[in-house]
Computed example of a mutant assay.
Amino acid sequence: MEPPRQELFNMIQGYKTTQALYVAAKLGVADHLVHGLMRAEDLAKEVGANSKALFRLMRHLAALGIFTQDKSTKFGLTPLGELLRTDNPESMRYSAIFSGEENYKAAGNLLHSVRTGETAFNHLYGKGHFDWMAENTDASSTFNKAMAQTLRRRGNPVESYDYSGRHLVVDIGGGRGDLIGSVLVSNPTMEGILFDLPQGSSEAQSHLKTKGVQDRCRIETGSFFDSVPAGGDVYVVSRILHDWSDDKATAILANIRKAIKEDGTLLIRDSVLSDNDVQGSTLDLTMLIMTGGQERTESEWRSLLQSAGFALTRVYKKEGQLDLVEAKPDKQPPHRR
């Protein structure tokens, strides 16, 4: 066990690890090491980098266990490094890239958020994250791929949920369709609707085709602040509501309440905060700096749902970073917050 000073020092130095992983992911280093060991000089030619600087980066990441380094100074992949390969089914490459770009810059303005309560990203970029991504297609694509990769971390309770007797699932803010695609693959008698902004769903058609479910899933575009597709008996909202303040989250839920069947089910994939929840509280800080949203406790989820005409029926605790909240339409009048 390390002394407290060293333990704290390691935490303080964490920003360098984030950037080192980001650079390796951005350059695609792991993809070039898939066929065997390489010297930094040869690797630098492949990825377009300075050989001496790349050697120093690789040496550091080898010390962290991301890559191997042998006596001839050739580098290779470890099990951790394998996760930075683009073609790895468990890849976290785009998660590393997203964490090292606008997310990282916003984190550097956390002090502004804590002092003012304002969203660091908005302060830094002059507009909200989603508005900014609408103007930056590369960043939007990276974000969608990063979100898709987090779906695969230690299972997804939305995919394993029992959809018996259900016919139409509507994925609100479904991005490129990773989640609804997996649900439809596992439930071959169901049909689906993927609903998102045009820039959010721009890659959905090709991805759903890859999944083999394009004939059972239609894509609709629009803003969930205006309305959502009606008639579904299951509505899925995965990692959406935590992006927004209570007022805006209530507006989204109210639109879903208007659209859902009276015997329908709402599934919310987000954190349900508890004491000493490191992953959940880390994600909560991300919402503070990136979107102005927040993670919520079970009681906060219950109150939020009541304000939009839903009753919380069950919480499935996390296997990975996120939990699953199940809710049903409430026959009682909405409880206003």
Results as ranks from 00 to 15, higher is better:
residue 284 D to T: 09
residue 257 R to F: 02
residue 288 L to I: 13
residue 281 S to E: 13
residue 282 T to F: 13
residue 260 I to F: 02
residue 280 G to F: 05
residue 303 S to A: 14
residue 267 L to I: 09
residue 303 S to L: 14
residue 261 K to D: 13
residue 291 T to I: 09
residue 265 T to P: 06
residue 296 R to M: 04
residue 255 N to V: 06
residue 300 E to F: 02
residue 256 I to P: 03
residue 272 V to T: 03
residue 267 L to E: 03
residue 293 G to N: 07
residue 273 L to G: 01
residue 298 E to K: 14
residue 296 R to A: 04
residue 287 M to V: 11
residue 303 S to E: 15
residue 301 W to G: 02
residue 262 E to N: 14
residue 256 I to W: 07
residue 276 N to M: 10
residue 271 S to F: 02
residue 295 E to K: 11
residue 270 D to P: 03
residue 296 R to W: 03
residue 266 L to M: 10
residue 279 Q to A: 15
residue 257 R to L: 03
residue 302 R to N: 15
residue 270 D to T: 00
residue 271 S to A: 13
residue 303 S to R: 14
residue 302 R to C: 09
residue 301 W to E: 00
residue 272 V to M: 00
residue 305 L to T: 09
residue 260 I to D: 04
residue 284 D to P: 06
residue 270 D to M: 01
residue 283 L to T: 07
residue 270 D to G: 01
residue 298 E to S: 10
residue 301 W to Q: 04
residue 295 E to F: 02
residue 268 I to W: 01
residue 271 S to I: 11
residue 276 N to H: 11
residue 273 L to E: 01
residue 276 N to Q: 10
residue 301 W to H: 07
residue 254 A to Y: 04
residue 262 E to D: 15
residue 299 S to T: 11
residue 278 V to L: 14
residue 280 G to W: 04
residue 285 L to C: 13
residue 276 N to K: 12
residue 280 G to Q: 09
residue 279 Q to V: 13
residue 256 I to C: 07
residue 298 E to W: 03
residue 295 E to V: 05
residue 305 L to W: 02
residue 277 D to F: 03
residue 265 T to L: 06
residue 273 L to N: 02
residue 280 G to Y: 02
residue 290 M to D: 07
residue 256 I to T: 09
residue 273 L to M: 12
residue 283 L to W: 02
residue 270 D to I: 01
residue 305 L to G: 08
residue 260 I to P: 01
residue 278 V to D: 08
residue 266 L to S: 07
residue 305 L to P: 01
residue 258 K to Q: 14
residue 302 R to G: 04
residue 274 S to D: 10
residue 287 M to H: 14
residue 283 L to I: 02
residue 258 K to S: 12
residue 255 N to M: 10
residue 269 R to K: 14
residue 305 L to F: 07
residue 258 K to V: 07
residue 266 L to G: 01
residue 285 L to G: 10
residue 258 K to R: 15
residue 304 L to R: 05
residue 272 V to K: 00
